[in-house]
Amino acid sequence: MKLTSNQIQQLYKFTRQHYVEHFDVQTELVDHLANDIEQIWQEQPKLSFEQARDISFKKFGVFGFMDVVEARSKALSKKYWELVWNIFKQFFTIPQILISITIFLTIAIGFDMFSAKKVLLTISIGVILALFFRLYFLQKEKKKRFKQTQKKWLLEEYIFNIGGGVAFLNLFFQLVIYSPKIVTTNFQLIMSFILTVFILLIYITTFILPSKIEEILRNQYPEYKLV
């Protein structure tokens, strides 16, 4: 006996009730449960859909779907930072390296012309404000997309949450609090390099990746165009 479309939809609902929010993870679990229910029915045809479903769910153990969700999150977090790294590398090849050099030189010259505290404060406050506005916009965009499609994808969530990169905010807050007044030339150069790297990473995670979201989701999920 095969499951009906209605029962498949009930399985999607069942996974949502068990804390699986994302469609990509739900889909794999729904197919697994469906196969197992059909197998159970072959051996015990008198069981109801709900009884067979519960027998199947029990096989996932005491943590239910949590192990699967956790493993999927880890795998996609790795994927997300791979995407970031691939774009980041391009900023050290021609022609994008010109952008990196410009940022680096602007900061280094800034250190030369103004006090270190002034430079660090200006950059930190600028980055914090940009991050706040951008995150606000991305959260709005995320809600809008979900309203339209009624489906959340795990990688999409990572992109809109800038891969948990809100930690960048803390880093720049620390810079505001602890920025030193006087620094050595070596410190200026190292700091210019580190800040360039962070500014590039923030630009990639908050602007470039969200702008490519459709392309990324199509590449990552073969099922994206099927639904």
Partner: peptide
């Protein structure tokens, strides 16, 4: 990913 029966 393929559509098999009525599921992915």
């Amino acid at each position: 990913v393929a559509k098999v029966d009525n599921r992915l």
